[in-house]
């Protein structure tokens, strides 16, 4: 069974008289343990699709079913709760909270979930260990390099063991060496921790690191030269 089903999703923006439709009836299934890279020209709608799956944007039509829940039907508040439990978001620029230490930034998503303080501490320590930043736990973002900040961002995304981790150009603002570090870290998250990943990138080499590569072209989603389909067809 698939973990994420995007079913016939359309997204459009009114731009004066004309309508931009970056996603025009797109379908996609992501399975547990998948590592999917999403590529396409600038403005093709990659971020839009990723944000829809992450539950921070609304579809014009279609359904997005994640772990059995159609998130397009959730209210705003419920959607926030849902994100806390199911989504790990890695941003292009790390988006860490400047007044919180690395440890506290990583802990932030856990404060939304029911768990004991001891459990929380254990999880934060494991996540920081996974990104190799245990010695930096008490540092503030401004005391770290861009690559280190992005690793804290990844620790924050994986700490709650979300259903899926989405990353929007996670290496977009890093140099080559740091990019390599981050990409291999993401591969390890997929390989060793068995987490499901969806990564938007405009870098073909980066995209090639994923297990599956899909492309957005003129509102359609392509994989291996064919339009992607959802494997689960819901009869509702």
């Amino acid at each position: 069974m698939s973990l994420v089903d995007v079913l016939n999703v359309t997204k459009e923006y009114a731009n004066g008289d004309e309508t931009i439709r970056p996603l025009d009836g797109v379908s996609l299934s992501i399975h547990e343990g998948d590592y999917v890279s999403l590529m396409g020209a600038s403005g093709s709608g990659k971020s839009t699709l990723l944000n829809l799956i992450a539950g921070i944007d609304q579809v014009a039509s279609g359904e997005i079913v994640v772990a059995g829940t159609d998130i397009t039907k959730l209210s705003r508040g419920k959607l926030a709760d849902w994100r806390a439990a199911h989504i790990g978001y890695v941003f292009q620029t790390h988006n860490l909270i400047p007044v919180l230490t690395a440890y506290e930034n990583v802990e932030l998503p856990l404060l939304l979930l029911p768990m004991s303080a001891a459990e929380r501490r254990k999880r934060v320590e494991i996540a920081l260990e996974a990104v190799d930043l245990t010695p930096r736990a008490s540092h503030y973002p401004r005391q770290m390099s861009g690559g280190q900040e992005q690793r804290v961002g990844i620790a924050r995304a994986i700490v709650a063991s979300p259903t899926i981790i989405v990353a929007d150009e996670p290496t977009g603002s890093l140099d080559d060496e740091t990019t390599e570090q981050i990409l291999s870290l993401l591969s390890r998250v997929n390989d060793e921790l068995g987490m499901t990943l969806l990564m938007v990138t405009h870098d073909a080499d980066a995209g090639a690191r994923a297990r599956r590569q899909v492309r957005l072209e003129r509102g359609r989603l392509m994989e291996n030269g064919k339009e992607t389909k959802a494997t689960t067809l819901r009869t509702a």
Binding site: A80, A85, L108
Partner: peptide, 15 residues
């Protein structure tokens, strides 16, 4: 603005 949006993306409610 971006920081507050990040908090929302993580799952913090607007309230």
């Amino acid at each position: 603005i971006r920081e507050l949006a990040t908090l929302q993306a993580i799952g913090y409610r607007r309230r």
